[in-house]
Design a protein around this nucleic acid. Sequence first.
DNA 1: CAGAGGATTGGAATCGATTCCAAAGATCTT
DNA 2: AAGATCTTTGGAATCGATTCCAATCCTCTG
Lengths: 332, 332
Amino acid sequence: MARATVQDVAKTAGVSVGTVSRVLNGSPAVSTASREKVNEAIRRLSYRPLASARDLRRDRTMRVLALAKNLESLVVSEVFRGVGDAAADSGYVSLIAATAGDLEREQQLVDMLRNGSVDGMVLFSPTMPDEDVDAVAGQLSVVQVCEIVDADAAFGVSIDDRQAAYDMTRHLIDTGGRRLAMIAHRSARSGRLREAGFRQAVADAGLPPGRVLSGEGGFGFHAGRRLARELLAAGDLPDAVFCGTDIAAAGCVRELTDAGLRVPHDIAVAGFDDSAQAEMCVPELTTVRQPAYEMGRVAFAELLERMTVPGAHRRGRVFLPHELVVRDSTKG
Amino acid sequence: MARATVQDVAKTAGVSVGTVSRVLNGSPAVSTASREKVNEAIRRLSYRPLASARDLRRDRTMRVLALAKNLESLVVSEVFRGVGDAAADSGYVSLIAATAGDLEREQQLVDMLRNGSVDGMVLFSPTMPDEDVDAVAGQLSVVQVCEIVDADAAFGVSIDDRQAAYDMTRHLIDTGGRRLAMIAHRSARSGRLREAGFRQAVADAGLPPGRVLSGEGGFGFHAGRRLARELLAAGDLPDAVFCGTDIAAAGCVRELTDAGLRVPHDIAVAGFDDSAQAEMCVPELTTVRQPAYEMGRVAFAELLERMTVPGAHRRGRVFLPHELVVRDSTKG
DNA sequence: CAGAGGATTGGAATCGATTCCAAAGATCTT
DNA sequence: AAGATCTTTGGAATCGATTCCAATCCTCTG
């Protein structure tokens, strides 16, 4: 029993293929009688229009692809949930793919946009060089989110990482921090921006520039621990540490606690992202919340515009507001 | 500048469309001269074969879809990483979609299999009723993973959750546990199996049946805390608690610790899944590791067989070996 | 050097759904 | 009741890549 086609449905229903197609697409130019016959035939044959044939004729797929290196982070999955919901509201399906930081895999997925497998793409953390992002975004419907490349043609949605880090550093200073340090992730764009915000805030407060430790290759719990250990080993302990992510902050807190220090009494620690881990840490982490879900929704809205109004390629970026979440790891 | 077609390439290269297509598909029946002319034309026009046209003609897409409720869990993302890698090895692209437990969304995504948007599907935790899974799996290329529905036609890859829970419970008993309790998640299939394994192990050891608390609606950190609080409130404290997931175990440990109990000295706690949180917890969690990546690879291998050998619809399920990871939250 | 056999090529048919155009049918007007 | 208008319908053309068949071009063999 091969797949039924529009021809089969037409024959079964005793009408022409044109009429079947009109029923499928909700055209009003069909009599009630025909519509019912067609629907009955569709049911009997359990017919589904073949996607590739439809896409070919219509020249669009109603699918978008969201790309990230990996998916286990709460920010990524919330952003993509936002994209997915917004897409669904507009009749699109949003698919997700993880590149694992593999350039070749990423190229292959971007090719899905070039070859019309999907109509648009949301780019979370591209591995390819900036100029490639620019080239792709110049021709195709692409919107960046969170980890945004500086590209002329590209458009992106994110928080102001620099300002958010500035604000958090300011909070550390306002609550008594004088010797600040940062555990940064320079390998990520957002990490570099957060570092810049940290440095600026320290400088603006007239404090001596704090030590900045950067995790090379990985920035997880263990990196946080290792860098905290370095901090301890270096002596001249800071009284506040700003970590580029909550996971690293959790590692940092753990290492400091194991060394007998009390957080925040002896040393304050702040994270970033308001991950699930922020609440699971002891003490619970002060952190910066990104409106991840909303960012996803906004990203899709922009993407939709690019997909449907091909001329309207807005450039630049949109910043959504971040929020300081003060918990127990810093002095309230 | 509209998209170039195979016709344009043929014209530019001064050959026929047949030859262009042969070059595109690596057919040996092309002279070196023609091949070079075609490749040159492809480069000049930056031509990409349109996916929908190709898919229509070939009657397959070389794409598979992996479905789960949500993606932030390490198990899901590792499974899907395995699927993705195995797919790439066979020239397939694997896409991911999250249903958020929304039945309508899930139906829409399953429709992508029915309408030929993808060639196969990996189902992690279906929301639809078992008989629907059965119906879909009976006709289409579907493989289940981890959260496996009992369906005649369906095929699935998982660990033996029941046995794994049995083994972990046995470990709790072997290390001195006599009054056992479980924090379970009955809303998930795997949760029910783990509960059954727990009960069996307790019974086999001749111990009194332990108290089992089940989290309704959500089974995260907070649910773990709440259920641990219930345990405390009930008095007659157990000396070992088996939690259905690491996240719940982390919540449980936190609540017990806050109540002044020492883990594992006063009460042992075990988790399940070997999530990232298992190592971040204080004390680090004893847990069960699932070979998630490998499960993804095996799932794709099975899927490939279903996609390419349509007759060979293997039923039943494959169990992959689990592993007890003993850390500090139980008495070594 | 004729002819067999192989290598290469061109081009039409095909996949299945949509859409446009012309025609047929229905309804209304006067 | 004829003509005008509106509704509904059938069917061919179309989207772009692949593939099969027949035709052409080589290269050897004897």
